[in-house]
Amino acid sequence: MSDSPVLALLKDLISRRSITPEDAGCQQLLISRLEKLGFECEVMVFEDTTNLWARRGMEKPLFCFAGHTDVVPTGPEKNWTYPPFEPTVSDGLLFGRGAADMKSGIAAFMIALEQFIAKHQDHNGSIALLITSDEEGPFINGTTRVIDTLEARNEKIDYCIVGEPSSTEHVGDTIKNGRRGSLTADLTINGIQGHVAYPHLVENPIHSCVGALTELSQIQWDEGNEYFPPTSFQITNFNSGTGASNVVPGEAQIQCNFRYSTELTAEQIVNRVVSILEKHALKYQIEWTYNGSPFITRPGSLTNAVSEAILSVTGLTTELSTSGGTSDARFIAPTGAQVVEVGPGNKTIHKVNECVKIADLEELVHIYRITLEKLLAC
Rank of each mutant, 00 (worst) to 15 (best):
L7Y: 10
A8C: 13
S15G: 10
R16V: 07
P21G: 10
E22G: 11
E22S: 14
L29R: 15
S32T: 12
L34M: 07
L37M: 14
M44P: 00
N51Y: 02
R55A: 09
R56E: 11
E59Q: 14
K60N: 06
A66R: 13
G67F: 09
P73F: 12
Y82I: 07
P83R: 08
P87H: 03
S90A: 12
R97C: 00
S104A: 13
A112R: 07
I117Q: 09
A128T: 00
I131E: 00
E136M: 02
N141E: 11
V146K: 13
V146C: 05
V146P: 00
I147D: 11
T149H: 14
L150V: 08
E155M: 14
V162I: 15
E164R: 05
N177H: 08
R179Q: 08
G181Q: 09
T184K: 15
L187R: 06
G194T: 03
E203R: 13
S208L: 11
S208M: 12
G211S: 08
T214C: 03
I219S: 04
Q220M: 07
E226K: 09
T231M: 10
S232R: 13
Q234W: 08
S240Y: 15
G243K: 13
V248L: 10
V248E: 11
P249L: 05
L277G: 11
H280C: 08
A281K: 15
L282R: 09
K283G: 09
I286V: 14
I286T: 08
E287H: 10
Y290T: 09
N291S: 11
N304M: 12
S307A: 10
T326Y: 14
D328F: 05
P334I: 01
K347T: 03
H350D: 05
K351T: 06
V356W: 03
E362V: 02
V365F: 03
H366M: 10
I370D: 11
I370S: 06
L376T: 05
C378P: 10
